[in-house]
Computed example of a mutant assay.
Amino acid sequence: MLVEHAGVQRKSIVPDANLISDLGLDEYTLGGVVLNAERRTERELDGGAHYTTVSDLAISLCRAKTVRRLAGMRYIRTIDGAELKRRISAKGSRIVIDFSAEWCRPCQMIRRSLAEIASEQKERFDIVRIDIDKTPDVAELYGVRSIPTVVLLRNGRHIETKVGAAPKQLYVSYFLYYFGGQ
C-alpha cells in the first residue's frame, strides 16, 4: 500500500487491511507516522527495539497513539447481519445501530462521541456499527436512505430512527429517552 504525507509517497505494508479504518486513521495520518518512523528507525533499532520493517514500527506507533487517544473508551465493533441477528435475539436487548461508511465524513465525526457514550452507558445498551457498503441488505431492512443514521432497537423491535450527525449530548438524551434512562 502506498501512503502519502506532505507530497512524499512511502511504501507501507499493513498486515491487516481493516486496522487503519478500525482505529479511525486515514492514509494521511498513516503516511505521517511512516515518515516519522523512517526518521526514527536508526535510533529505535540502535536502542534495542527490533522491527522487521519500517511498517511494523509505523503500525506500533499508530496503535500506541490511538490507544492513548481512546484510553477509557469502549470500542464499537463493526458487525454483519448474522451477528446483529444474534444480538437482537438476546432477551431484553437494547441496541443502538450506527449505520455508516468509511467514506462518510459526518459518520467519522460522530464515531468518537458514540464510542464515549458506549463506554459511559454500557450497562444500559449496546452500540454497534453497520457498514452500509459491506452489508447493504441490513441497511435496506431498516430503511436507511442517508448516513449517518442511528436506529434504536428494544427487545428486537425497531423503536426509533435518527438521521444525521448530532452533538454527543443530544445522542445521550435521545438514547436515554427511548431506553427509559434517568
Rank of each mutant, 00 (worst) to 15 (best):
T149P: 04
Y142W: 06
I95H: 12
Y178S: 10
E42H: 01
T161M: 06
E102G: 03
R69G: 05
D137M: 07
L61P: 00
A49W: 00
R69V: 00
L114E: 08
V151T: 02
S113Q: 03
P136G: 08
R94M: 11
T52N: 08
G156M: 04
V163T: 13
S173V: 01
D16I: 05
L152K: 01
R77E: 15
L61N: 04
I117L: 13
G156V: 04
L170S: 06
R157L: 11
A71S: 12
R74V: 09
R94Y: 05
G47V: 00
V172I: 08
R86I: 09
I88T: 14
C107W: 13
R69D: 12
R112T: 03
G72T: 12
G32S: 09
S60C: 00
P15D: 14
K11F: 13
V3A: 15
P106E: 11
S113C: 00
L153P: 01
N155E: 09
E160D: 11
C104I: 03
S60K: 05
Y142G: 05
C62Y: 05
G164N: 08
P148K: 07
W103L: 07
A58V: 02
Y142P: 05
G92P: 00
W103D: 06
R145V: 06
R129C: 13
Y177F: 01
L30H: 07
E140M: 10
K85H: 07
D133I: 09
E44K: 00
T66G: 06
I159L: 02
A82I: 04
V128P: 08
K162V: 03
I79P: 10
L25S: 04
S21F: 12
K91V: 09
L45F: 01
L2N: 15
F179C: 10
L61D: 07
P148W: 10
T161S: 05
G180W: 01
Q182L: 07
T52D: 15
V34N: 10
K134A: 14
G81T: 10
E83G: 01
D133K: 02
G92M: 01
K91R: 03
T29R: 15
K65Y: 15
P106I: 12
I20R: 10
Q9L: 11
D137N: 08
K168C: 06
Y174N: 04
Y28M: 13
L114N: 09
C104A: 13
R39C: 06
L141P: 00
A118K: 01
R74Q: 14
V144A: 06
L25T: 03
N36L: 12
